[in-house]
C-alpha cells in the first residue's frame, strides 16, 4: 500500500497543465467568478487529484457563501431604507400643524429637535401660515424634555419669522424644570411671548383676534 502510493507520487500526470488549470481557477475566483471547476479524471486519480477536488469544493462553497452574503447585504440595505422611511413618517407624524380655529394654528412640538427637523418644522409652519392666512400661532413645547441653546435659538428664529409674515406667536408648555434651566443657561427669551399651557395660549389667541369664549347660561 505504502509502496503503491509512493509510486503514484512519482508520476503525476500532466503536471504542468494541471498546475496551470489550478492557477486559472484560483485567478477566476479571485476575480469573483466561482463557476469554473478544475476538470478531474477519476480513473487516473493520483496524489494531486485530492488537492484538485479540495480546491473545487472550496471554491464552490465560497461561491455559495458570497451569494448568501450579497443577499444578506441586500436585505440589510432594504431594512435600512425602511428605517429611513419610517423615520421620515414618524417625523411628519410627530409634527402636526393643527388648525385650531380660523386664523389660529397650533404646533405641538414633541421629542427632540435636531437641526434638520427644526428647519423643516419652521418651513412647514411658515407655509401653513401663509396658506391659511393665520394670524396667531401657538408653539407648544410640553413634549420637549430638553431645551438647550440650540432649541432656544430655534424658537427665537421661528418666532421672528412668524412675525415677518405678519402673524403672532406664543410659546406654551414650558415645564418648570425647563424654565429654570433656560434661565441658568442664560438664554434670553424675553422677546418671546410665553404662557404656561395650551389653554392659556388659546385664550390669548382668541383675545388677539378680538374673540371671546362665553359660557351659555
Amino acid at each position: 500500500m505504502a509502496e503503491s502510493k509512493k509510486s503514484q507520487n512519482k508520476d503525476i500526470n500532466n503536471l504542468d497543465k494541471r498546475i496551470e488549470a489550478i492557477e486559472e481557477i484560483l485567478a477566476a475566483a479571485a476575480g469573483g467568478d466561482f463557476s469554473a471547476e478544475i476538470p478531474i479524471v477519476m480513473e487516473e486519480a493520483d496524489v494531486l487529484t485530492s488537492v484538485e477536488t479540495g480546491i473545487n469544493i472550496l471554491i464552490s462553497d465560497l461561491g455559495d457563501e458570497v451569494v448568501q452574503s450579497n443577499k444578506r447585504a441586500d436585505q440589510l440595505q432594504e431594512k435600512l431604507d425602511l428605517i429611513k422611511k419610517q423615520r421620515q413618517a414618524i417625523e411628519e407624524l410627530s409634527t402636526p400643524i393643527i388648525k385650531m380655529w380660523d386664523k389660529v394654528l397650533v404646533l405641538p412640538l414633541i421629542g427632540t429637535l435636531d437641526t434638520r427637523r427644526s428647519q423643516k418644522l419652521t418651513e412647514s409652519l411658515l407655509t401653513e401660515i401663509a396658506l391659511t392666512q393665520s394670524k396667531v400661532t401657538i408653539l407648544d413645547i410640553t413634549g420637549v424634555p430638553t431645551v438647550d441653546s440650540a432649541v432656544a435659538n430655534h424658537l427665537l428664529k421661528t418666532v421672528a419669522s412668524v412675525k415677518l409674515l405678519g402673524a403672532e406667536c406664543v410659546v406654551t408648555g414650558i415645564r418648570p424644570e425647563v424654565a429654570q434651566t433656560i434661565v441658568h443657561l442664560g438664554v434670553d427669551l424675553t422677546g418671546v411671548e410665553t404662557l404656561s399651557n395650551l389653554s392659556e395660549g388659546l385664550k390669548w389667541a382668541f383675545n388677539r383676534l378680538n374673540m371671546r369664549i362665553v359660557e351659555e347660561e
Binding site: 438647550d148 440650540a150 418648570p176 424644570e177 425647563v178 429654570q180 434651566t181 443657561l185
Partner: peptide, 14 residues
C-alpha cells in the same frame, strides 16, 4: 431630581 436631571441633560447637550 427632575430639575437637576434637566440641568445635567441640558449641559451635556451643549
Amino acid at each position: 431630581g427632575l430639575v437637576d436631571q434637566t440641568r445635567i441633560s441640558t449641559a451635556v447637550s451643549e
